[in-house]
Design a protein around this nucleic acid. Structure first.
Lengths: 364, 364
DNA sequence: CTGTTAGCGCTTTCAT
DNA sequence: ATGAAAGCGCTAACAG
């Protein structure tokens, strides 16, 4: 089959593939698979095969095709591939915040697995807002992701309905819900909160306060607070020593503002459970400014093993969770589920609950 | 007009739209625009219009269509829309790291503008690797983004070629390149580095060291270092006091490890320029552990106005750049460029250079 | 190993 | 305000 046109490659020329359309559209794209096929003297199908695998076409055909691809600068059009193959190559991942180092590590863990699997992540941050989660889900589902990974287990009814209808694997992370939507990779924040209080108790503290953000929007922080409350009650320690400030997530500012309030309201406080290391660091720094020695006068325990707590002076005792593993395992679960689906097999719901550990350092 | 078929909606039933295909494909999708059209007693085109705008169809038609959409849980297929309209609705944004709060803020700034404009961001982190930037660009371009936003001005030749061929608006951020690929929204890291050294000099310091990461991979950090060197030379201060440790980005660990080396090698050092606040905080904390008072014995200046520097004790003097504005302006530039293109107008290359300021605090 | 045919679900264009 | 026809660039399925 002879090549149409001359041997030269028109770069960016829009007319290359334009045939006589009786009722044409705007304008043809630049170089398409057709173009490459024609120039290589093969069919589009062969180009498609050459581009994808090794053994699908003969070595020499493949090389010829790749040569033309190189010359023309052809870039396959994923939107057409997606449309034809009905596989988007996307997975959607939502986190409350992309910046928070815990979630960032989780996303990094996912990214490693998905890169490997040739899946591209569609990242969204919900800003700790269920309403935003819902609208992100709506937007992302239009892209036909092959799976969706959520942070947490609380979603709006509309979100849940969309997720169900989408009929794709769902993974909820960072919590341990009793009635999950799909797979789960997480841990019990409540237990973590309880453990924080109990740890301070073991270290001899008896008047233990809690610092967090306005709890209702940060579900996981709220759970930790609930765990703290439960433990405090069980241990028979004075209750109600809670200062919640500002919108989630809790920041260093939260801790900094909350600390003086704690000391004013309950001057005999000798231990503080902070919803995260960021708040803990804010509180610790404020202690230093106020001349309140930590841990001598107040012990402080944080959550999340953030970089700041590992490096500040004194270093912050904290609860460590393997955030990256959460992401990795969640992503592996997705890949498994997709493979099972490919083979037409069902896959049981997975529930992976991780351990967390107290990392004893210098503030408690 | 009565609805065709029964009143019940088949959820996820694959046979709804399936016609007698002589050589069928796998299986039809769930609810498509056709399905909705049929149930609403209109054409697909009308559904398409109803879904997009207000004034395109009559109010009652629109409501009927939306009602069916609600009942069926129809989710438009973006891949088909993209394919037909030749507009992906994507913009690609690459940053060295998503976690770094500077870049995270820039991405947040972009996100605000793009959300508004109905554009979805395809986020990628290059991990400070040009090679990874290149492969991300290759991957992203397959999705036909309408524009691409890069961090920095150094790219591989292959990356540059792909970008040129893509013929989409390009914005480079966080630097002030003399030969940009497209639009620029940034500032001079070199000047920032010089300013850091000069500031310490104005504060009476005369033996000023620099702490950073292994510089070659972090272009912007390297530029700041170069600026520091230049200023030191101009001021006639002792040169060569540079400790570069580890892979970029510079972290608290970098600062923590570098500080004792600085003090060992040049014990009379009285000021330290740190490539970022993270390194500055690491160094500051190490000072505290070693009993080296800051700023009395060593002044410290960081870069980036990170949260930690605003809250630690003493608070870190730093250089502030409006990271979010970088993102916002970059995104606005993209939107403008896209609108210009829509109208068939050309758009001049934009070059927006931001100011930075020394934020005087307690460490210098 | 390679080609042909049909069609993915939507929007463009033109017609009414 | 609505509809009909055509087709976007690619791949599934089948044929050779």
């Amino acid at each position: 089959m002879p090549l149409r046109g001359s041997g030269s490659i028109a770069m960016g020329g829009p007319k290359l593939t334009k045939s006589e359309a009786p009722r044409g559209r705007k304008e043809a794209a630049g170089v398409t698979m057709q173009t490459v096929a024609r120039l290589a003297g093969v069919s589009a199908m062969t180009v498609s095969r050459a581009l994808r695998g090794e053994g699908l076409v003969s070595r020499e055909t493949r090389e010829r095709v790749l040569e033309v691809v190189r010359e023309t600068g052809y870039v396959p059009d994923a939107s057409a591939r997606v449309f034809a193959s009905r596989r988007s190559g996307f997975v959607a991942a939502l986190a409350p915040s992309l910046n928070n180092s815990n979630f960032a590590e989780t996303l990094r863990g996912m990214s490693g697995v998905f890169d490997e699997a040739g899946l591209q992540m569609l990242l969204g941050d919900t800003q700790y807002l269920l309403s935003r989660e819902e609208s992100l889900i709506a937007t992302f589902l239009q892209r036909r992701p092959e799976a969706i990974l959520l942070t947490g287990s609380v979603h709006t009814p509309a979100a849940k309905q969309m997720l169900k209808r989408a009929e794709i694997p769902i993974v909820e992370t960072w919590e341990a819900p009793s009635r999950p939507l799909g797979h789960v990779v997480g841990f019990s924040n409540k237990k973590a909160g309880a453990e924080m209080a109990r740890y301070l108790h073991r270290r001899g503290r008896r008047r233990i306060a809690f610092i967090g953000s306005a709890a209702d929007r940060d579900r996981r922080g709220f759970e930790r607070q609930a765990g703290y409350c439960e433990a405090i009650a069980e241990l028979g320690l004075p209750e109600g020593r809670i200062v919640s400030i500002g919108a989630p997530p809790a920041t260093m500012a939260t801790g900094g503002e909350a600390l003086p309030r704690v000391l004013e309201q309950w001057p005999d406080t000798d231990g503080i459970v902070c919803v995260s290391d960021l708040a803990a660091f804010g509180a610790l720094s404020e202690c230093q400014r106020l001349g309140v020695p930590a841990p001598d006068r107040v012990a402080i325990i944080g959550f999340g093993d953030f970089e700041v707590g590992r490096h500040c002076c004194p270093r912050i005792t904290t609860i460590g969770v393997d955030s990256e593993a959460i992401g990795r395992i969640a992503a592996e679960t997705v890949v498994e589920a997709l493979e099972a689906r490919e083979r037409g097999e069902p896959m049981a719901r997975k529930r992976h609950i991780l351990e967390f550990t107290v990392i004893e350092r210098e503030t408690a």
